[in-house]
Design a protein around this nucleic acid. Structure first.
Lengths: 230, 230
DNA sequence: ACAGTAATCAATAGATTACTTGATTACTGC
DNA sequence: GCAGTAATCAAGTAATCTATTGATTACTGT
C-alpha cells in the first residue's frame, strides 16, 4: 500500500517539525533563546540571570541542542552557548508576534507592568535611522557590556543601565538621546529614559531591541569600538 | 523588592509565549495547522485526513483554540475550524524553515521519500509569475475541490489529483503545465507531473504550495471562477 | 598532585500531556 | 417526537516532561 508508506512519511516529517516545536513549549527555554539572541553566554551566567539551578539550565540547553537550535564551544572551564542560526531568532520573534496578535492577556499584562508606554515616545527602527542621519542623536545601549561587545547598533554608546546614574556627567544636557535594550519587553531602556529625563535630558526609547535591529539587516558593529550610525 | 515583581512579570510573559509554543509541540497539531492553512475544515474531515479519532481531533482543536490560534463557526451539524490569523501560518512556516535549516534528518527523509526532486524541474513562485505573464502556461491546482474553492492561485484550473487521469482529454497536448498543491511536502503536484509527463505533456511543479503563495501576497481568487493569472 | 569551579550525568518524584472509551449535547430530516 | 450524525465532554491510563538532588567529569591554577 502506497498510503501506508505515505502515512509513515508524514508521521516522521511532522515528528521532526514537532521536535522544533517541543523546544518552544517551555517558558524557560524561550527565555534562554531570547537571551542568546543578544550574544553567546555561559551556562552559569544564564542560570544566574534566569534564577534557575545550574543543572536545570544545562538540561534545557541540551534540549535546545538536541533540536539543533543552539551550538556551543568550550573555553577553559566555561561552555559558551549561542544560537545556531539567525532563523532561530526569527522563529522566536514569530512566536512573540502571534502571542501579541492573539492573546489579549499579553496586552493587559504589559499594560499593568509598564503603564502607558506611549509616554516614553517610543521610536521605531526606521525613525531612528532617519533621525540619526538628519540630527545628532546619541544612541545608548543599556545592556550589559558583554552583550554590547557581542554586537550593537552601529554608533551606539555602551552605558549599562546600572552604570547610567554614575556616568551621567559624561552625557551632555543639550543633546538628544535614544536608548535601546534587549527587546520590547525589556525594561532597561525604559529605566534609562526615566533617569535621563529626571536629569533634564531629552530621551526616548527604541521600541524594538538589538535582535530586531540585527534581523532587519541594519548597520551594526561588534567589539568595543564605537562607530557612527549613518 | 522591584526585582520580585519583575520576575513574576517575566514568568507570566514567557508563560504566555510558551502557551503558543506548547501548541506547536505536537506533530498532529502541526499537521492540523497546515491543513487549515489551505482553508477551513470540519472536525470530521480533519480526523479522516489525519487518521485520528474524532474525539482526539476535537481535543487538539480545542487546544489550538485555547491558544487562540484557530477559530470556529457552526453550520448545522458541522463545526468549521479556520486559522485565526495569517500570522499563525507564518509561524508554522517559520518552524518548518528552522527544521529545514537545522535538521539533517529532514533532508534525508525527504530525499528517501521523493527521490531526486530536481527531475521535476521545480518552478519558484517568482518564476511562475513571470512565466505566466510571458507565455501561456496552464496552472493546475491539484488539491481537493473544497480547498480550491477556499482560495487558489489566480487563473489556476482545479484538477484534484484523483480526477487528473480521467480529465486528461481536457488538457491539450501542446500546452505547458505547472502543477501545485498544499506545499513543498505534499505529493499531489509531484504525482500530477508524473502523470502528465507519462501522457506526453510538458509539466513541472511549483516548489511551494498555496499557503506560501498567499503569504507572499501574490494574486489569488476564491470560489469556483477561474480568472487569468497576469 | 590537589583544591576549586563549570558543567554534565543519573535517578527520581511530581506534574502535564496524549489518546481511548463511553456518555452526552446539538442539530437535521423525517 | 424520534432516529441519526457531528461534536464535545468526562474519566482513566500510559507516556512524557520538568525540576531537584547528589555524584561525576573536565579543566585551571597553584
Amino acid at each position: 500500500m502506497p498510503s501506508d508508506a505515505h502515512r509513515t512519511f508524514k508521521d516522521r516529517l511532522y515528528g521532526l517539525f514537532a521536535r522544533i516545536g517541543k523546544t518552544l513549549a517551555s517558558p524557560h527555554r524561550l527565555e534562554i533563546l531570547e537571551l542568546l539572541a543578544q550574544g553567546e553566554r555561559t551556562v552559569e551566567s544564564l542560570a544566574r540571570e534566569l534564577g534557575l539551578s545550574l543543572a536545570n539550565t544545562s538540561q534545557h540547553l541540551q534540549a535546545l541542542r538536541q533540536a539543533a537550535l543552539v551550538e556551543s564551544r568550550k573555553e577553559g572551564l566555561y561552555v559558551y552557548y549561542r544560537l545556531a542560526d539567525p532563523a532561530v531568532s526569527d522563529l522566536c520573534r514569530s512566536v512573540r508576534t502571534v502571542a501579541e496578535h492573539r492573546l489579549a492577556e499579553l496586552d493587559r499584562l504589559v499594560r499593568d507592568h509598564f503603564g502607558d508606554r506611549a509616554a516614553a515616545e517610543p521610536v521605531s527602527m526606521d525613525e531612528l535611522l532617519t533621525l540619526a542621519r538628519s540630527r545628532d542623536v546619541i544612541v545608548l545601549d543599556t545592556r550589559p557590556a558583554s552583550e554590547y561587545a557581542a554586537g550593537h547598533i552601529a554608533g551606539a554608546l555602551s552605558v549599562p543601565i546600572d552604570d547610567l546614574q554614575r556616568r551621567l556627567r559624561q552625557l551632555p544636557r543639550d543633546r538628544e538621546y535614544v536608548a535601546y535594550c534587549r527587546g520590547p519587553y525589556c525594561v532597561y531602556a525604559d529605566r534609562a529614559v526615566e533617569i535621563l529625563r529626571a536629569k533634564g535630558r531629552r530621551a526616548r526609547r527604541l521600541l524594538e531591541g538589538f535582535p530586531e535591529w540585527k534581523a532587519a539587516g541594519l548597520p551594526m558593529h561588534t567589539g568595543l569600538e564605537q562607530g557612527v550610525l549613518r
